[in-house]
């Protein structure tokens, strides 16, 4: 079945999912921290919009709540916390140069292809919609992972971590019409606590190495002669 034959609402969800993926690429290559945080906030808002669309399409009432939760948490609270931390750490003007920007983008493209390859076995039985949405959310998760590897700055790594969570939310909402409420609340709580702890760690890292460049955290290795 081709994409144009899908119901309009499903096409709309796919469009939003594609935008989420696009923003993942944006996050990956954005070197200015504040701009990256804004991209992340837009990604969160899009996830909330997907949730709302699915809620309207499926008349699933608990998803209205879930959409609100996502909007509050992913599009407002976490970006705001990050914003505040960046200001308190005086990193507003911080830019980071990726060592191999083209290579990293190519790797991200490869991850998208890989995600589609992973879901190939599901093709035969499942609908075009589910296959696409699972592939896109897996790609968002993996690009988040790539961001953790490629970026050396702690705040950027946290953005990668949080965009992984966005990919998971996308999968949960669009492929399965939302997790049970108790699980969703638990996950949201964990994400929030994680964000608070990340904030604590930014200061601890800065106190210990005078910078947030986590590549300089390299004291613990296997080959060291004298472990301190």
């Amino acid at each position: 079945m081709s994409l144009t034959q899908l119901p309009l609402l499903e096409q709309f969800v796919l469009l939003q999912a594609a935008l989420v993926l696009f923003l993942s690429f944006g996050l990956l290559s954005q070197t200015r921290l504040l701009a990256a945080i804004h991209a992340f906030a837009w990604q969160g808002a899009l996830i909330a919009a997907v949730t709302l669309t699915v809620a309207i399409a499926g008349h699933a009432h608990h998803l209205y709540f879930s959409a609100l939760l996502t909007l509050a948490l992913k599009a407002m609270l976490i970006p705001w916390m990050l914003h505040r931390l960046v200001r308190r750490l005086a990193l507003e003007r911080h830019t980071e140069t990726l060592s191999h920007p083209a290579l990293v983008s190519m790797a991200a493209v490869a991850l998208v292809i890989f995600s589609y390859w992973v879901v190939v076995p599901i093709v035969a039985e499942e609908l075009t919609f589910t296959r696409n949405i699972v592939a896109v959310s897996l790609a968002v998760v993996l690009i988040g992972l790539l961001m953790l590897v490629a970026r050396q700055q702690a705040v950027a790594q946290v953005l990668g971590f949080m965009s992984m969570e966005n990919g998971l939310f996308l999968a949960a909402v669009s492929a399965t019409a939302g997790m049970p409420l108790v699980v969703e609340l638990g996950v949201a709580f964990d994400v929030l606590v994680a964000m608070v702890l990340f904030g604590v760690f930014f200061f601890q890292i800065r106190d210990s190495i005078d910078s947030l460049d986590v590549d300089r955290l390299n004291r613990l290795t296997e080959t060291e002669e004298e472990t301190p």
């Binding site: 601890q204 890292i205 210990s208 190495i209 004291r219």
Partner: peptide, 15 residues
């Protein structure tokens, strides 16, 4: 203990 090693270990563990 807030030593640089401890902070590094915790960050690694967390991520």
């Amino acid at each position: 203990y807030r030593t640089p090693e401890a902070v590094e270990a915790a960050w690694k563990y967390f991520i």
